[in-house]
């Protein structure tokens, strides 16, 4: 036979523990008071895209080459790119106009996934409300360009990985270029040796120049 009312007393004890604990224990009062304390976002949190530039000068260090793959792949079609042309009308590898309409963007990150030049990445800034209904929600190129250092600060792992990839690409290119140069040099040396002494076999010392 149970004592009637014991359940209520247990309930009161739980509530009292919560009440007293909310003053001393951290996890019994988990509210973050918003304007004064911002929430700690996980690293992969994303809001809207931005363009990465290396170095100090945004226009010179911009990684985007205006290939327009992101514009084609974007599901709600919120990216507007116009390629830059020089005085003669020849296409340059940079965009003149790069607008993203963030009132349309759905943060799907497809533009990031398809970019071959690691130039468009997702930002984390969510405090973007404006009083103007559409105008200030169309972000243009100067506002989209943010430095690689900023990218490192918001997505450290991703940025390090991207930098590693770019570095690897660069080294591969250099290696390919050096190999090509060495091969060209070797071919030129062979040709010279053939012209100089065609019947004499190659001297091992000439092969030492190969990397």
């Amino acid at each position: 036979m149970n004592i009637p009312g014991s359940g209520i007393l247990k309930g009161l004890a739980v509530t009292a523990r919560n009440f007293a604990g909310s003053y001393v224990e951290k996890d019994r009062l988990t509210t973050e008071q918003y304007p004064e304390e911002r929430p700690k976002l996980p690293e992969a949190a994303r809001s809207f895209p931005f363009l990465v530039y290396d170095g100090d000068d945004p226009e010179a260090g911009m990684r985007c080459v205006s290939c327009k793959i992101c514009e084609k792949e974007c599901p709600p079609q919120c990216i507007y790119i116009i390629q830059d042309r020089d005085e003669a009308g020849k296409a340059l590898k940079r965009p003149k106009v790069f607008d993203i309409d963030i009132s349309v963007c759905m943060s799907c990150q497809i533009c990031v996934e398809v970019c071959p030049f690691e130039s468009i990445r997702m930002d984390q800034d969510y405090e973007l409300s404006s009083f103007d209904r559409f105008g200030s929600l169309m972000i243009d190129k100067p506002k989209l360009l943010k430095s690689n250092t900023y990218y490192h600060s918001i997505h450290p792992t991703e940025a390090a990985e991207t930098d590693g990839r770019i570095e690897a690409e660069r080294l591969k290119k250099e290696a390919a270029a050096a190999a090509k140069a060495a091969a060209a040099q070797k071919a030129a040396a062979e040709k010279a040796a053939k012209e100089a002494a065609p019947s004499v076999p190659l001297v091992p010392s000439q092969q030492e120049g190969k990397p």
Partner: peptide
């Protein structure tokens, strides 16, 4: 405020 503290939140502050 007391109801809020029991429910693990601040009350009106």
């Amino acid at each position: 405020k007391i109801l809020a503290r029991v429910q693990n939140r601040y009350g009106p502050n």
